[in-house]
Nucleic acid binder design. Structure first.
Lengths: 333, 333
DNA sequence: CTGAAAGCGCTTACAG
DNA sequence: CTGAAAGCGCTTACAG
């Protein structure tokens, strides 16, 4: 049983003088068979490095042992670090459970890649990594009744979602700043097509309400996803002498800081700055920037576990991971 | 032929009064059959939205129509934008050719995920997205004789590689600065375990040699991948009054600029700054930073095409994509 | 040009 | 506890 040919269960059975059935059962662990027989088979395959053909198994079981993962397929480089880490967690859990991850990079306008994968029936379930307010890929998955888990918030109660506690964390950070006596806040928000943007806005408003500060008295700029919009927003902030600028993500925050420095505004002395999402850069900027840190890999792991549970027919519920870190740095001193 | 059951080629054959053979041939386009028969079959399946079972096809053809993709499985967020874009190109070409992409996130120390995938024979070939000087995953792929393409430079002539013209581009940018009369250069280099780091260093040295400037008279700092090392390096640069600091990637560049501003050094008036890799941030920093831009998506596409060619048995050679952009911005004015 | 039949390598209901 | 046989849904060499 060496050389080039790839061996099959049939070869193993022949060499051991057993039936394919028995060998199959020893490997899968299903069905009863004597401890000795099982050991004989397992020892033999371990020694000869035999691995059953996964495709044949898939056909026989009508399961692919593949999970689909929908990643954003646009060329905006925003948040890629989040998706990379999230994928890290997903791949890890999938791999540990002998599943593989098959990626489709689709966007708000196209579901072509995932559509093809579903047509070919190459996955048992799907994880959607970016949650959009209006998501064609989610519509597709629902329509075809594919077991799915969405990373992020969704208003659809029929879907299983796994999310960070964005709303709570943003509320807490905002409240902390208000509690420290910051007079007036500005919020530079991200793309409103993403549900995460709405969660963060909600958290901000929660804190305002709780503190008895009218949310609309604050300066709120949404969709500040390009340089010009950020510049305009920052100018307004300076003009209106806000106490602190809160940015929804690190990209916006970077631009905002750059713009503040350009305008000769001292941070944090004149205007404080904080960010609702951390990345390693914020720590290294001067001044270093206060931010919220979430564990994207853990989120990926949780999403993957939920999907696997779903596939095993277990009861699964949407959940929000409670933990996050508030990292207070120089920019809010 | 509606309802819930998933239809098979056999059902189609029965409904049309044909054999499975004929239906199969009409769909695959292989073997000869009358134009009318083919049309009848194709019309029927189009109307009824029939798609053959990909797993069954895989088993019969001993091909999975899956490509493996090895992505960096560490948690450093460096270069994630590159891998994301590269993956975009790979997924696009794969999808267009009815292949799917199955990801493994391994690192310098582990090949566990890709090892499992190979054991399960779930891919026909593999693309390795990060080229390491010493790469266990490449060793594994060679050992198992899996058709593979590596994105980036490699010293192994047996491997097919597809790379950007890093060396040439870095040489050109360095030469341009020397040509503009910049007195003395400093290079802040990345992780020496990555082959791309070596290509960039080589390009830098090429330009020095070409200009008759001794490479070792320049200030070269390698592995400046964390804040402390960058700070130390920048301090030395200021002390030695270099004319320009060249950074190998945008992460390093960001830290370097931040540090220069902190030390009160005017950029570009006192020290110029440029980067060997662009990302959208560099454009928005103040001052905006001169850099080299490569098309990572196109690189991914090229790598994927090469792998598909390899799988089709076509002759494939390693190649370097010649095009790149040199983006001159305020930091080198 | 078309089809019957064997084969890809597993799993599993059924029988013993 | 073990096995013979049918089945998963395709492809393809062979025959006509």
């Amino acid at each position: 049983m060496d050389g080039k040919k790839v061996y099959t269960i049939e070869d193993v059975a022949r060499e051991l003088g057993l039936s394919k059935t028995t060998v199959s059962r020893a490997i899968s662990g299903k069905g009863r068979l004597s401890v000795q027989t099982r050991k004989r088979v397992l020892d033999f395959i371990a020694e000869h490095n035999f691995r059953p053909n996964a495709v044949a198994r898939s056909l026989a079981q009508s399961r692919t042992f593949n999970l689909g993962l929908v990643l954003p397929g646009d060329r905006k480089d925003i948040d890629v670090a989040f998706f990379h880490e999230c994928m890290l967690g997903i791949c890890q859990v999938a791999s540990e459970n002998d599943y593989d991850v098959l990626v489709a990079m689709d966007n708000e306008f196209s579901t072509r890649q995932m559509g093809r994968i579903l047509d070919n029936r190459k996955v048992d379930g799907v994880i959607v990594a970016r949650s959009l307010v209006k998501s064609p890929v989610l519509a597709l998955l629902k329509d075809r009744k594919i077991p799915s888990v969405i990373v992020g918030n969704t208003s659809d109660p029929e879907l299983i979602s796994v999310d960070n506690s964005n709303r709570e964390a943003c509320r807490d950070l905002t409240a902390l700043l208000i509690g420290r006596g910051v007079r007036r806040l500005a919020l530079l928000g991200g793309d409103e097509n993403y549900t995460v943007t709405r969660s963060r806005l909600q958290g901000f408003l929660d804190a305002c309400q709780q503190a008895g500060v009218a949310g609309k008295d604050q300066l709120i700029f949404m969709n500040t996803t390009n340089r010009d919009r950020v510049i305009t927003a920052v100018e307004k902030c300076v003009e209106q002498r806000v106490g602190c600028i809160l940015c929804m993500d690190d990209y916006i925050c970077n631009l905002a800081l750059s713009q503040l420095l350009e305008q000769g505004v001292a941070v944090p002395e004149e205007i404080k700055l904080a960010c609702f999402y951390d990345n390693s850069l914020l720590e290294h900027l001067i001044p270093s920037v206060t931010s919220l840190r979430f564990d994207a890999a853990e989120l990926g792991r949780a999403a993957c576990r939920s999907l696997l549970d779903l596939l095993e027919g277990r009861q699964v519920r949407s959940c929000v991971l409670p933990s996050y870190q508030m990292i207070l740095r120089d920019s809010t001193k």
